[in-house]
């Protein structure tokens, strides 16, 4: 009997965690497509690292671990980091990649210092804040999953509403500006959506590896299709798949951080896609090359 009740309890926890991871993977997979297509894959990394001090400050100010408050703190810090990168590029002669590296490491270092300070205070409530580094999906509660669902859902709906505007912004920003689209505002909107996707994943996946949840599903999806619509849909599915499988593996084995596990699962999807996808896949490519060579040889023999 005792066994049975732990089993049921275990299943319920696992279900919550799996739902959370699936939602997370869906949101970050879909929005990650835009980051990848704009060649801003590293921006996700900067945002997630920059978000870390925001969590600590939100906790220090409120003493609360309510997900919405921590997410808000993370979002503000991630946002400030992104703005800082953009301003550095615009106002100085420092290049984008250098600005990114400076902001990423400064914010992250500041975040680590704050987290260490919080741990020293011995506040009993602080337990669990360190999961934001590498992620621990097993700590996801119902309220966390609800937060992910609502905010992630809003982000996806906004993406769908401005679908054609965002598509044109990513494909041809000059043309978009010439027909009167406010590209600065759209740029900020798109970045904000990315910030939302990232901060939602911090608890489960962690700041260090969250950007992989944006990039990997999108890269894999691009291999299979030449339509943006399908790419976003596929990336959402791949993200959910990697999220769920990664969290389940890390939840069942004890004390394996979820971030790395999810990233490994996503890597498998990327690897398979790069190898086996039709048209763009390496295997397909090789077969086509050999066939071409054979055809060419045959044609030459006929000529002789």
């Amino acid at each position: 009997m005792g066994n049975l009740s732990t089993l049921i309890h275990f299943d319920y926890t696992l279900m919550i965690v799996a739902v959370g991871a699936a939602l997370l993977g869906t949101v970050s997979g879909a929005l990650g497509c835009y980051a990848v297509l704009r060649r801003q894959s590293l921006l996700g990394d900067a945002i997630s690292h920059a978000a870390l001090p925001g969590i600590a400050i939100a906790f220090l100010l409120t003493g609360s671990k309510v997900p919405l408050i921590l997410v808000l703190g993370a979002a503000i810090a991630g946002w400030l980091g992104t703005l800082l990168i953009m301003s550095i590029v615009r106002l100085t002669r420092i290049k984008y990649d250098s600005a990114l590296a400076i902001v990423l490491s400064t914010f992250f270092g500041f975040g680590l210092v704050l987290h260490t300070l919080i741990q020293r205070t011995g506040n009993a409530n602080q337990a669990g804040l360190d999961t934001f580094l590498f992620g621990q999906a097993a700590t996801l509660l119902e309220r966390d999953v609800l937060t992910i669902g609502i905010l992630g859902g809003i982000a996806l709906i906004v993406m769908l509403i401005f679908w054609k505007e965002l598509k044109l912004l990513v494909f041809d920003a000059d043309f978009a500006a010439s027909i009167g689209l406010p590209i600065r505002t759209l740029d900020i909107l798109l970045t904000s959506l990315l910030v939302i996707a990232i901060v939602l994943g911090l608890q489960a996946v962690g700041a260090v590896l969250m950007s992989a949840m944006l990039v990997a599903p999108a890269v894999a999806a691009r291999q299979w299709t030449n339509r943006l619509r399908l790419m976003v849909l596929l990336a959402a599915c791949f993200g959910a798949l990697a999220g769920v499988s990664g969290t389940i593996i890390s939840s069942t084995a004890s004390r394996i951080p979820t971030g790395p596990t999810i990233v490994l699962c996503a890597t498998v999807v990327v690897g398979l896609s790069i190898a086996f996808a039709p048209n763009r896949g390496l295997v397909w490519d090789r077969i086509r090359q050999q066939r071409n060579r054979r055809d060419l040889k045959a044609a030459m023999e006929i000529q002789e």
Binding site: F171, D172, N226, R227, L230
Partner: peptide, 8 residues
């Protein structure tokens, strides 16, 4: 000025 590998 645009990336022709864009999925469209």
């Amino acid at each position: 000025s645009v990336d022709w590998d864009f999925p469209t």
